[in-house]
Design a protein around this nucleic acid. Structure first.
Length: 138
DNA sequence: GCCAACGTTGGC
DNA sequence: GCCAACGTTGGC
């Protein structure tokens, strides 16, 4: 089971929207490097849902429940999408922030820090271990 | 194939 | 709301 991270602008689609929907098709990813991550998603993998606006935080967790497929609505045939199930959201005052991740200085090589505009990425195991140490139940 | 111009994203 | 970073596009 692999961990990934997916960014979303909470003004467009927040963890609360996701909680309400329960299941969603994760779409809107067009960037080549980000698509590599989506295409690698497999059923049972976990995806950390990250808010990329406002307080930049890890807001919750999702699970991949459908194999990725080409976005039928993308005229150019570039984008891929996959079905995600809402698992949990973290209470707003206990969320791990981008600042926390940066100040830990352990993850300077992590794409979240190094490649600011990448919208989906895989998470190194060291990062997940660190999250667990922070008390993040993911 | 290169690179300038342009558009978009994300962080603040 | 602004702007830096950087990915993408288009002209050559």
């Amino acid at each position: 089971m692999q961990y990934y991270l997916a960014k979303t602008d909470p003004d467009t689609y927040s963890i609360d929207d996701f909680e309400r929907d329960g299941v969603t098709i994760w779409d809107g990813v067009h960037n080549y490097a980000a698509l590599i991550a989506i295409k690698a998603w497999r059923i049972g993998d976990r995806v950390l849902i990250y808010h990329s606006q406002g307080e930049t935080t890890i807001a919750g967790v999702a699970e991949v429940i459908g194999e990725p497929y080409k976005d039928p609505h993308d005229a150019r045939g570039i984008s891929w999408v996959a079905k995600l199930k809402f698992i949990k959201k973290f209470s707003p005052d206990s969320r791990v922030t981008l600042k926390d991740i940066k100040t830990s200085s352990l993850f300077a090589d992590f794409a979240l820090v190094k490649q600011g505009r990448l919208s989906t990425m895989s998470c190194p195991k060291t990062f997940i271990d660190w999250l667990h140490e922070q008390g993040v139940n993911c």
